[in-house]
Structure formats: structure tokens, C-alpha cells
Amino acid sequence: MTTPGHCDGEVCVTCSDEAVPVTVLAVDDDGIARVDTGRGVEEVSVALVDAAVGDVVLVHAKEAIASLGPASRISP
């Protein structure tokens, strides 16, 4: 049984101060984006940032908190 505040994964983005970079695959009219996390596809809110398909956004607790722009611009 999991206790409140306990995280089972390697990193708990809800409990930590870590934002995870993900790539936007699609954005709907309700401010929800489908994103590629590198481990799969998830839905996150992009209501606080301007995000378009192909952008990399920083996500904390399923909320995009910053947009870094197009993935092609920030890739090495």
C-alpha cells in the first residue's frame, strides 16, 4: 500500500522541484497537450504557456510551466 507523499518511481515530479522536458505532439482547444516524455505519451496542461506542436515544454506535476520553443532549435 502506498502512503500519502510516497513516490514509487525513480523521480517524483509531484514531490520534487524538478521540471521534466517533453515534446508537444498535439494541443487541443481546452489547453491539454499530448506530449512525448521519452518513455511514452502523456497528457499535460499547457494553459500557462504558449505551446505548439514540436515545442519542448518543461512540465511539473502535469502542468507545463515554461516553453523552450521548437525542439529543432534546442537540439545539439
Rank of each mutant, 00 (worst) to 15 (best):
D30W: 02
V35Q: 10
D36C: 10
E63P: 00
K62V: 03
L68S: 10
D50K: 08
S16M: 03
V59F: 01
A51C: 08
D29P: 00
R73L: 12
H6Y: 06
C12D: 13
V53Q: 06
S75W: 02
K62N: 09
A52Q: 04
T2C: 10
P70S: 15
D50V: 07
V35R: 13
S72E: 13
P70I: 05
G5L: 11
V46W: 07
G54M: 04
D36Y: 04
S67E: 05
T14F: 10
D28F: 01
A51Q: 12
A64Y: 00
T3P: 02
A47F: 01
R73N: 10
P70R: 15
R39I: 09
V53H: 01
T14M: 12
K62L: 09
E43K: 13
V59H: 04
G40S: 08
G5Q: 13
V59D: 00
D36Q: 14
A64F: 01
V22D: 04
V57N: 00
R34H: 05
A71N: 05
V46I: 14
A71M: 02
T2Q: 14
I74H: 02
V24P: 07
I65S: 11
A66T: 13
A52D: 08
I32E: 01
G69V: 08
E43S: 11
E43Q: 14
I65N: 07
T37F: 03
G9T: 05
T37H: 02
E63I: 13
G38A: 04
I65T: 15
H6K: 14
S16W: 00
V13M: 06
G40P: 00
V35E: 08
V44M: 06
P70E: 13
C7F: 02
A19R: 09
V27A: 07
R73C: 00
P21N: 11
R73T: 05
R73S: 14
K62Q: 12
I74R: 15
D50W: 00
V24R: 08
G38R: 02
E18G: 01
S45D: 09
V27D: 06
L25Y: 03
L48E: 15
A19N: 10
G9N: 06
V57G: 09
A61M: 13
A19W: 04
P70Y: 05
S45A: 06
I74S: 01
A66G: 10
E63V: 14
G54N: 02
V56C: 02
I32T: 12
D55Q: 02
E42V: 15
D8N: 12
D29E: 11
A26W: 11
P4Q: 12
I74T: 06
P4F: 14
A71H: 04
S72W: 10
V44I: 15
H6M: 15
A33G: 07
